[in-house]
């Protein structure tokens, strides 16, 4: 076999593999992509029900209801609009009210979300312990201004 012919085959092989990879990528980017919205964007966009999406925002204050063990309902807010979330399963350790979270799930007809996953965002700034202790002593823990 001449070197020229070998090279041709090699190039052809590369192109075939590259083509196959591109097809896979295109197919999968259509199938496996999840859109991300804030509550306001979600309401603006009028999304068809039963679509998988992610929504990010804060857990609204005093909206958290524990319906039974591992069955929760809460609202997620961006300070202008709220979205109701239903979730069955384990909540992350960092989950609490007024904490930034991201929820993945399906949207239903009433623009509520049936969540399949809840991710809590890490809070990177903490208060020093000494002050925290004092605050707790005086029942003023809630009064932390970030």
């Amino acid at each position: 076999m001449s070197l020229r012919f070998q090279r041709l085959i090699l190039i052809l092989l590369t192109l075939i593999m590259l083509g196959a990879a591109l097809l896979l990528i295109l197919f999968n980017t259509k199938q496996n992509i999840v859109f991300f919205y804030t509550p306001s964007e979600l309401l603006e966009n009028n999304i068809a029900p039963d679509k998988k999406l992610r929504i990010g925002g804060y857990v609204k204050k005093s909206s958290f209801v524990k319906k039974s063990l591992n069955n929760y309902e809460f609202k997620i807010t961006d300070n202008t609009n709220d979205i109701v979330i239903f979730y069955k399963g384990m909540l992350p350790d960092l989950f609490r009210e007024e904490q930034g979270i991201v929820v993945e799930g399906l949207i239903d007809k009433n623009n509520n979300i049936v969540a399949s996953k809840v991710y809590a965002k890490h809070d990177e700034n903490y208060m020093p312990a000494s002050i925290k202790k004092e605050l707790e002593k005086n029942n003023q823990w809630k009064k932390n201004y970030k």
């Binding site: 991300f36 990010g56 925002g57 804060y58 961006d78 300070n79 991201v102 201004y145």
Partner: peptide
Amino acid sequence: PNDPPSAL
């Protein structure tokens, strides 16, 4: 991409 507006 993942940062919601501040509510703090």
